[in-house]
Write a protein that binds this DNA or RNA. Sequence first.
RNA 1: GCGGACGUGGCGGAAUCGGUAGACGCUGGAGACUUAAAAUCUUCUGCCAUUGGCGUGCGGGUUCGAGUCCCGCCGUCCGCACCA
Length: 836
Amino acid sequence: MSNTRFNALKADAHWQQVWDDAKTFAARDDSPKPKSYVLEMFPYPSGRIHMGHVRNYTMGDVLARYRRMKGMEVLHPMGWDAFGMPAENAAMEKGVHPGGWTRDNIATMKAQLKRLGFALDWTRELATCEPDYYGHEQALFLKFYEHGLVYRKESAVNWDPVDMTVLANEQVIDGRGWRSGALVEKRKLSQWFLKITAFADDLLSGVKALEHWPDKVRLMQENWIGKSQGLTFRFALSASVGGADTVEVFTTRPDTIFGASFVAVAADHPIAQAIAANSPEAAAFIERCKQGGTTAAELETQEKLGFDTGITANHPFDPAWQLPVYIANFVLMDYGVGAVYGVPAHDQRDFEFARKYGLPIRRVVSDGAKDAPEFHEDEAYSGPGTVVNSHFLDGMDIEDAKREVIRRAEDGGWGEGATVYRLRDWGVSRQRYWGTPIPIIHCAACGVVPVPADQLPVVLPEDVSFATPGNPLDKHPTWKHVACPTCGGEALRETDTLDTFADSSWYFIRFASQPKDKPFDKAVAESWLPVGQYIGGVEHAILHLLYARFWTRALNHIGMIDVSEPFTGLFTQGMVTHETYKSADGRWLAPDDVRDGIEIATGAAVTLGRVEKMSKSKKNTVDPTGIVDQYGADAVRWFMLSDSPPERDLPWSEAGIEGAWRFVQRLWRLFEGAGAGEGADTALDRKLHQTIAGVAADIEALSFNKAVAKIYELANAIEKAAPSASRDNAIRNVMLLVAPMVPHLAEEAWAAAGGTGLIADAAWPAVDAALLVEDEVTIAIQVNGKLRDTLVLPKGQSKEAIEAAALASDKVIRILEGKTPKKVIVVPDRLVNLVA
RNA sequence: GCGGACGUGGCGGAAUCGGUAGACGCUGGAGACUUAAAAUCUUCUGCCAUUGGCGUGCGGGUUCGAGUCCCGCCGUCCGCACCA
C-alpha cells in the first residue's frame, strides 16, 4: 500500500451507497439468529438535526453494529415524531402548510442522518403524521374505548392561552405551559381521558423491577406516581352544607387523630362552593385563593390562609369534641379528596396555620424525650415515635396506631384504609389541527359513537386555514359534518386531536411489525419486543416513558400483546455543550464569530461565558452538517464517543474534533502499515486480546469513552512494536474493533486489506482467554503505606518469595535502616506493605 | 422544603473488589524533518522543592493501607414541590 490520506468524503458516500444497495441493515423478522432491538428516541422533525441527535444516534449505532458483529439479528429503526405544535406555529408565522413543512423537514433531516452512516433499517421508516400510522393509532384508541380504558368527562382543564390548547398536568410547569411559558388558566371542557390511574400500582411495581434503568429515572417515575397509603373517613358536620352532612378527608397519619385541631377543605371543594353561594365573604376568600401564584418562589413564601366557615366537625372518637371547619388555600382539590384534618404538632403546614389562627397545638407523638401535651417547639415534629395523650392509642408505635385507627374506622363504618396516587388520568384531547383526529362522532340522537373500523383512518383534511386562532378543524366548512354511523342522521365529528405523546407511546411496536391492515402483528411484534436498549434524553424520563409503559400495559390488558414493559434497558445520555461568548456590548456571539478571544467583525475582546447546552438563544450551536462535510462522518462519530462518559455532558470543541480527525488519519496510516511480518510478539498478542475483551465489555456497558481509551492504548502499542506476524494480526483486528465506531474507515481498510465481504457483516474477533492473563506483574512496595519501590516478578509467586524480594530492595533497605518490620502485609501479585 | 446525583491536574476524564492516583485524549513546552509552514515523528507536561515532601471539595474517623468505607460540613447540578 502507498502512503495516502484517508479521503473521508469519498469513502463516506461510497460505503453508504453500498450498505443501502445491499440493505445491509434491514432487520429480518424470520432470522434464526437471536434478536436484539436497539432504539433511540425518534426525533421531532423540527428542521435540521443538531449535535444532540448526532450523539444519541451514534451511541445506539455503535451498539447496533457491535451486536450485529456478535451474531445477532438487530432491529435498529428510525422514524419521525411528526405531529406537534411547531408545524402549526410555522403555518401561522410563514403561511406554509404544517404537512408540507413537516415533510420537507423530514427529507432534510433524513439526508443529514444518512450522511452520518448510521446502521438504520430505513425500510421500516415511519412518520406519525401519515394516515398509515395514525389510522392504526385511532384503531387502538377505539380498542381502548371498547375495553373501558377511555372515558370522557367535563373537567376543569389547564388552558394555555397562547397555544390555545389544553395541557396535561404533566405539561404544566410551575403554573406555566411547558412550551409557550404562558400562565395557565382553568377552563371547563369536555375532554377524553385514558385511564392511566387504573395501572398506577402496576406501573409503580413495574418500575421498581427495571434494573437496567438509571436509578434516577426510576425514582422520578416513582415520585410521579406518588403512592400514599392512609385512611379516608367522614366527619359528621354540625350543619348540612349543600346537601352534605359529612365531610370526607384523607390522611396518611391516622395515628395523630387525637392531635386534630381543625378541618380544612380546598377552595374549589363542593362544601366551599356551597358556602360561598350564601356568603360573599367566603366567595371573596375563594377568589383570593385562586389568585395565588403557583411558581416555586411564590409557594415558598405564601402565607397559609383560611376562612372559618362557622361550621364544626365532630371528632369521630369523641362526639363532644368539635373541630372548626376552614376553607384553606393550602389544600389541593386534585389530591386525595380535597379535604384534610389538621394536626399542628406533627405537620408543618398545619403548625403554621394553627399559629396564625390561634388553634390548639397538642402533642400526640413523643420523640422519646418529650411527651407532655403542651407543645412549645418552633416547628412541627413529623418523625417516628410513640403515641401519647391519645386515649386507647397511648404507648403504641405510630405504625401500630395507624393500623389500629384504620381498624376501628372500618369496624365503625365511618372510614376505610385507602391508597391515593399523585398520578392523574391522562387527558389526551387537544384543540389542535396537526395531530391524530380522535375517531369519534357525536350524534344528537345516539350520543357518542365510535367511528366504525371500516371507516378508519379518519384522515386530516389538507385544506385548512390558520388565519384565526383556535382549532382549524372546528372551523373547516365540511369536514366535521358527517352521517351518524348508527342512525344515519346528521352528526358531528370530534374535532379535537390526540396529545402527541400518544403517537410516541407505541411507535416502537409499529417499528417491530407494520402490516397494512392492523396496527401490528402480535407474534412478530413479540419476537422483537421488548426494546433491549432504549437511548434518549433525560427530558423524557417521566412523561414519554410513563405513557409508553402505560400504553403497552393497556395493550397487554386487552390481550393484544404479551409484553408489559416496553423498554427493559434504558440509557439517558448527556447533552452536547459549548462555550458561550458575549461581545463587549453584551450580545451573544456564535462560535464562528469569534477567533482567539476576539470578535472577528469588530476586533473587540469577547467575554468567555459558561459552558452550556447548545441553544439558539445563546448562539452556541454548531451545525453537524458543516462539520461532517469538513471532517467526515467518522471523525464526528469518534469525537461523540471520546472522553466524556455518555451520561454526562459532552463539551464540543474545535480542538476535540480536530483531535478525532487526526486519530482517524492515524488509524488509516496504521492500517496501511500492515506488511508481511514474521514471528510472534507475545506481549502485543496479550495487549490485543485484552483490548478485544475490554472494548467488548465497554461497548456492552455503553462506556464508549473507556473503549476509545483502550483503542488508543492498543494503537500506541502497535505503533511502537517491531514488525511481526502478531503486529499484522493486531492491525487487522483493530479494523474490527473500530468498525462499530468509524464504519466508513473500517470498510475502506477492510476492502484494501482484501477482507471478505463487508466488515459490517464480519464477526467480532474471538478472545483467547489464555492471553488475557499477564505472566509478569508489577508489585508495589510500600513502607508504612507509602510507595517506595516497584518490583517486576513472575505472576503467582508465594507470599514468602514476594516478601523476600521486597526486603531485598535497595530503597527499602535504605529506608528501614536495618530495622526489622513489625508487620508485613502481602497481597499476592499486587503489593507489599512493610509496617516498621 | 423533600428527594437524588456529582466534586480527581490548565481541560475532558481513568482507577470494575479498600491495594502503585492521574490511564487515554485535549491543551501547552522542547526537539527532529522542512527554504518555510502545515502534517508527521521524538520527548516532557499534578503541585512545591535541593535530598525530599504534598496531593482526589473541607474537617474528623475506621484500616497495615482510603479517590473508594463511616460521621459531620461546604459547593455545583438535576427532579419534585403546600401531595395531607
